[in-house]
Write a protein that binds this DNA or RNA. Sequence first.
RNA 1: GCCCGGAUGGUGGAAUGGUAGACACGCAGGACUUAAAAUCCUGUGGCCAUUACGGCUGUGCGGGUUCAAGUCCCGCUCCGGGUACCA
Length: 906
Amino acid sequence: MLKFFYFCKPINSNKIRNQMDYNFHEIEKKWQKYWEDNKTFKTPEDLTNPKKCYALDMFPYPSGAGLHVGHPEGYTATDIFSRYKRMKGFNVLHPMGWDAFGLPAEQYAIQTGTHPSIITNKNCDTFRRQIKELGLSYDWDKEINTTDPGYFKWTQWIFIRLYNTWFDDKLQKGRPVSELQIPENVSALGKKEVNNYIDSKRLAYYDNAQVWWCPTCRIVCANEEVLNDGTHEKCGNRVEKKNLKQWMLRIPLYAERLLKGIDTLDWPEGIKDMQRNWIGRSTGAEVDFKIEGLDKDLTVFTTRPDTLFGATYMVIAPEHPLTEAITTGENRKIVNDYIKASSLKSELDRTDLAKEKTGVFTGRYAINPVNKKKVPIWVADYVLTGYGTGAIMAVPAHDTRDFEFAQKFGLPIVCIQDPDVTDQEQKSRILKGEECWTEDGKYINSSDKSTGIDINGMNKEAGIDFVTRWLESKNLGKSKVNYKLRDWLFSRQRYWGEPFPVIHWEDGEITLLNENELPLELPELEKYLPGASGESPLSNSTEWLNVTDKNGRKGRRETNTMPQWAGSCWYYLRFIDPGNDKLPFDSTKEKYWMPVDLYIGGAEHAVLHLLYSRFWHKVLFDLGIVSTDEPYQRLFNQGMILAFAYETEAGAKVSVDLVEERDGKFYHKETGAVLRQIVAKMSKSLRNVVNPDDVVSKYGADSLRLYEMFMGPLDVVKPWDENGVKGVYGFLGRAFRFFSNPENVFEGEEDPEILKMLHKTIKKVGGDIESLNFNTAISAMMILLNLAYKKGKVTLKTADKFTQILSPFAPHISEELWSLLGHKGTITYEPWPEFNEDFMKEDVFEYPISFNGKMRFKIELPVSMAKDEIIKVVMADERTMKWIASCTPSNIIVVPNRIVNIVFKN
RNA sequence: GCCCGGAUGGUGGAAUGGUAGACACGCAGGACUUAAAAUCCUGUGGCCAUUACGGCUGUGCGGGUUCAAGUCCCGCUCCGGGUACCA
């Protein structure tokens, strides 16, 4: 600690100015106050400037732990971008807010009995203070908080719109339910059936659903919130299946739109792929199989209708609606036992199911439509109820899962494709049905006289097309597209979330509140603990809960609340006009600012938040509420920041501050034990958390910002290393000492070498900011500063420009230098310096001369020198003689201003 | 299993197919200092030489294309992320 004592010197020490140290404490405090007092970063009101930039961070959940060093990474990136755009003359919208509903605050409320809003607000205050100390150029007048009734009023308002919207499949567009045509056969059945029909079309619906239930959190989870080991992503505990009435959103109706929209976005390809995979579009056909002895068809979905001739059995999911009808008398017991066992199993451990396939025969047969052959129908839980039709035709020769199942139960495996494979042994195994083949090949055994179909000799693509059209023409099936994406479970049994503006009446009717009744606020409670059986704590609040309409009809409010995703689904829109109490936002402002030009956050939101948010946005777009089809034009994911952690040989974790390094080895300061260094996520248990507050007090916010950007490319995972902070801190100190010293800055003609480097640097830094390559931008500025040190002095103009290009990265020190260089006010709106290619031109180029591709020496030559002239000079050089000795060059490659390569044979 | 990333000095990382290792850390040496810290300067991939402005080698592994490959192609290994009976 003593080491840094000198930082505490007052800024007005009696040292003369050219010996002034870089006192970041004073400088940062001074300029943060200046910005706040002058509202420097206020969003421009003038919407006539055609250049606008909406730079957005994924707003944080304000946890009790405060900011960690991962937060400022993305925030600094968007901040540099925003500051740069301001200097380029853009109107910039750069806001920050709080995604403040969430379980931890509620958990705390349960333990302490205090209202969650109290701890939430306290946490927001901490986050705000910490963020302000980083010098981020947010317009704090735009701050929002999802738990503010003035905010969630509009979340409820959007929910009402989701409820009142249906999806017109023909137009591929959401429309108000008032425009929904009721089919005559439905309207004939009366009002109740009409309402049921409308409800079946709404984007939001209330229904009994088999849902994942986390007994620890006492909350249901969306499919996406359950990890593949069957645990809840929030708490890590095992979830169970439960049947509960819940609110659901019909996001799959927008699957095609969500999929197509991806192509128009400037997002990382990896994230786009993840969204595509999540939506999971697959094309194929639905095929109807007659069931022997039953007047019903068994419809299956398949992506390979071409393999119908290889279908040797059928499988239905245990929960399939026809299971009971299909099962014959003598098989009833064994099938029922199986269904029971598999339902129990799924509750215990789904993942174990993946290891060994199980199933039982129903006793009944279906008829294969292409050849009229009888195929047995089995029940097996490797077929899922929720996907396709919940039934499949099994083609073991050409599907690995079916192959496994058929092998286990001795079902026939008929190869119908001569595989495109060169290995003759493998080919023979496949043809004999001893190995599964899922790639392309020419059909065999694929014709039938009774039905007249014949695809023998065709390949996969032609076969799929042919069979699908044949099925359609015979009315036996149709082409079909399926999506993995499921309805979104949209309610949680919790207190600390947006209340649904919904009343359930005693007669079964559901009504939504009128807009003038919004916001529906949360009641004060004494107990925040939810019921063990799945009811929300809100059901304890009788006064709030029970309502009566003007006719005396009794009703209960919805006691579930919305999931945390709700608030973040549209917050970027509220930032545009956060104070509006008449509308969620003004549409003129929305048209101006949308879409978001740059959106930065963690890749952990690649699927959930970004998909949900895009879904809501598309609905709002269809309803004419927003002007763009997509919300986030350009997305970027910052990589996680890891940290070194230390453990003893036994594996015990040792706090970072108890470790000392000697000769590249690590020792425990107290025990002297040798320690292992590992790189891992920052976590309390590893005792390797780096607190940004500590970094700020030790090196300053500018150093923290600069280091986070200098560590490496923004999108990669990288380990925190305090020595790296020292490095950029040194750079800022050097810059400060150099430019604040009047002896180094003069008025007059600039040295040509500096001028050239300055203009190169301006170009490089500007380009790197646009492409978010901040690490190389910083190194370019370091090179320029090193050159300035070498030359000893620069012109005032150069000093100004250096300060300007540094300012988006390290704003405090830049403001201070700007005023020390004699300027008034803030540097924020100074125009970004122009670069002049003329100054960057080189007269000479140092040609690397290589022989057979190996660089041997260099010759400095004029850039304008012609190729044959260059060859002459190079061939005349005595070093060339040495390298080619007595050989004759067979070729001489000259790439102007790049390289000379002399090719010869030994 | 499938889909995406990645692998470069002691470390973080640079390199439109054209001088591999920019910049920074660390380390070594020097200057300043009574001394240390801070600061400034110099050197620094490895190996062999040290008489040289010297040679050899080098971007996970094995092939290939090219005058020229860290970069492009084919085949692997390892690491990270996502996803998983999705028919």
